[in-house]
Design a protein around this nucleic acid. Sequence first.
DNA 1: GGGATCTTGAGGGGCGATTC
DNA 2: GAATCGCCCCTCAAGATCCC
Length: 384
Amino acid sequence: IKVNSIVQQETLGYTSKEPRWAISYKFPATQMTTRINDIILSVGRLGNVTPIAVLEPIFLAGTTVTRASLHNFDEIARKDVRIGDTAFVEKGGEIIPQVVSIVESRRETGSTPYPVPSHCPECNSLLVKDEEVALKCVNPSCHAQVKRQIEYFASKNAMDIEGLGESIVEQFIKKGFLKDYGDIYYLNKEEIADLEGFGEKSALNLIQSIERSKKAPLHRLISGLGIKHIGSKAARILAETFHSIQNIQSKELDELVEVPEIGPIMAESVTQFFKEPINLEVLSKLEKAGVGFEENPSDSPSVGKDNFFTGKRFVLTGNLSHFSRKEAEEKILRLGGTCSSSVSSKTDYVIAGGKAGSKLQKAKDLNITVLTEEDFQRKLEETP
DNA sequence: GGGATCTTGAGGGGCGATTC
DNA sequence: GAATCGCCCCTCAAGATCCC
């Protein structure tokens, strides 16, 4: 057994379940070979075309792996991945399947390099490649893009519309109920209830969930609009700075660039979004439906006295048992802290739940204080 | 250049709704 | 009422890109 890392939990303050003296050994990721049966193309909400390897199913690190992202066509060329190849596959962090390399000695005779596609696999529009590595479908009406945009708008990170997942969105688009995310607010309960797989109860739940989302905090609405480069963090900054959609819309490029953490590319992306007639039409639908376009004062972070969380940067990892990661993040933000998705020297605390992964190791390497869930709860209780 | 963020995708468990 | 179905949630990683 090769040991590639050691995690000493001395500093973690773990309870008897995970004792202070415990040392864990990590194994190198298990690699196995399997055949690449096909390479399929997925179109994301911003039009990026991502190639995915369809694998001969293999049981690897406790699960059956059937697909792995190939990220982009440069990556395919770099690894020279071809349909029919035998590939080494592993799971990063024992979670994410990835194609590590190809076994060239087992390559089938007559195989050819995977061709870079010229047209969108969903709408057949011409694909373009600008400065970015990804190939892009630039047809705003592309079925796949519209579907992904609606899913993203309804997702937990955005408007949090429970019951509007991938397959339901697909079904609604096919039925003609949805053409963009603005249509969500004009869905008819009776029509939904008549659909296969739905009933009175589930239709009512969905409509209620949609109604609730009209009061979502401004930053979640901004995030849900799907503006390129504007994710949850940037959306929060824009909401806290400008307080309403109309206010953001009225800003010129140079005014947006003045906002901390918003650079010229992000600012350009925002102004471009509000210039597109197709986006203005959707915004109009949202506004007419009564979706909140202004910041609710209760959405702002607590600006009271300084506390343990004020100005500190946190990273969450592992499973928390008393609240979801999202809830923990919300609590930190409300108390004036910030949350990041990666550990760096600027991180003040890492909050580690059960089954914490590589972030815990990195925190240890960088000598960053690690809090258990119990420590975190105690700090919350101590904070007025 | 380092760090942060965004995007995308994977699997299984949990759970609610529908169907029989 | 039980069985089945399938959606949603959760977490993590890689690569690209952006900000400072």
